[in-house]
């Protein structure tokens, strides 16, 4: 509505100031594409190369995935930690917490049940 507000808030997906950036934002998307491609390629190639100690592989892949999600959020969705983005980031953090609770909680609970109740599926 007012100009002061305009500065303080950005819609998710909008860049704070597209006009003043070199290439009108094409640069941002291209950098994002490059980083994402690099991370994806690493994730696909890494297990085959035997560069990583095998038991730590899931953690390495998880870190790569989270890093790539971060790249997408920043370069494609333009959700950043800037002051104009507080609400957007808070909403994202809330969502991430819920996703973590649901997946983590379910896996933990069901694993504990399978272990205690001797679910035949676990012994196949």
């Amino acid at each position: 509505m007012s100009d002061a507000r305009q500065i303080l808030e950005t819609a998710p997906g909008d860049e704070a100031d597209v006009e003043h950036e070199f290439g009108g934002g094409v640069m941002g998307y291209t950098v994002g594409l490059g980083l994402a491609a690099l991370l994806t390629a690493t994730a696909f190639v890494l297990p085959a190369l035997n560069l990583v100690w095998p038991p730590s592989l899931p953690i390495a892949l998880g870190v790569l995935a989270i890093a790539q999600m971060g790249v997408h959020v920043v370069f494609f969705l333009h959700v950043t930690t800037g002051p104009d983005n507080v609400n957007n980031v808070l909403a994202l953090a809330f969502g991430a917490l819920i996703v973590f609770l649901i997946i983590g909680g379910s896996v933990w609970i069901m694993h504990a049940m399978n272990a205690n109740m001797m679910n035949p599926a676990m012994h196949m």
Partner: peptide, 8 residues
């Protein structure tokens, strides 16, 4: 009562 165990 599902049986997820004491800790859970």
């Amino acid at each position: 009562t599902m049986g997820a165990g004491g800790d859970v």
